[in-house]
Amino acid sequence: MAADVAVKTPYARATAPGQPNSAVFMQINNQGEATRLVNASSSAAKVVELHAHTQDQGVMRMRQIDAIELPANSQVELAPGGLHIMLIGLEAPLQDGSQIDMTLEFDDGTSEQLDVPVQMVMPAGMGHGQPMSHGKMH
């Protein structure tokens, strides 16, 4: 694990059956020198990419980025509508209440293994209201 980097509250977005992609969010606290998150991997998906949302002529677009900057003594938020880790080609639907594995790799060669809980997340811009139910009743 990177000496001064701590990952807080990681979670993956639950998916409906047949939905091929998901995203992972978290807070990364860096108490030391500036570093960068340069790669992530998980057995839950065929491809894992670092992504950012950018404004392109007034439209929000997702794009893959090479790294997520972690400035010295900072907290970086990976959240819906912003920086996130994309899971592409899921091996199975991500069910609320389950968890997936993830490895984060930093530019100093260190890595951190995470167990990431899967949670229902309202899509950005959906506002408040009742989430749609796609499955078993509790």
Rank of each mutant, 00 (worst) to 15 (best):
L37Q: 03
M126D: 07
L37C: 00
E77A: 13
T15K: 10
E91Y: 10
V76W: 00
A40F: 01
E49D: 12
T15A: 10
M132G: 09
M62W: 15
I85T: 02
M126I: 07
R36L: 10
N30Y: 04
G129L: 04
E91F: 13
H53L: 05
Q19K: 06
G129Q: 04
L90G: 01
G109P: 08
Q113N: 09
I88N: 08
I88P: 04
A45K: 01
H134L: 11
K8G: 11
E69S: 10
D115A: 14
A3D: 14
Q119N: 12
Q113I: 08
E49Q: 15
G32Q: 03
V59I: 12
E69K: 10
R63I: 08
E112K: 12
Q75A: 14
M120D: 11
A2N: 15
G109Y: 06
V116W: 09
V47K: 12
G58E: 02
G135H: 02
A34K: 15
I85C: 01
Q75P: 01
K46A: 12
P20C: 09
V24A: 04
I28R: 06
R13D: 00
L90M: 06
H51C: 14
A45W: 00
Q19D: 12
T54S: 13
A124M: 11
T103S: 05
A79H: 09
R61F: 07
K46P: 05
I88E: 06
G125Q: 06
D4C: 06
V48H: 04
H84N: 12
M102G: 03
Q55M: 15
K8D: 03
D101H: 07
E69I: 06
H51M: 15
A92Q: 06
G97W: 12
P71K: 11
V48K: 05
V121Y: 00
V118P: 04
M126Q: 07
A52N: 14
F106K: 00
P117G: 02
A79N: 03
G109I: 08
N73G: 07
M60A: 14
P17C: 13
P117W: 05
H138S: 09
A6P: 04
F106S: 05
S22I: 05
I88M: 11
S42P: 00
V38Q: 11
M26V: 00
P131A: 12
V118A: 08
K136C: 03
G125F: 07
V76P: 01
T9P: 00
K136H: 09
M1A: 15
Q64L: 09
I28F: 02
Q130K: 13
L104P: 04
T9L: 15
I65H: 03
K46S: 10
T54Q: 13
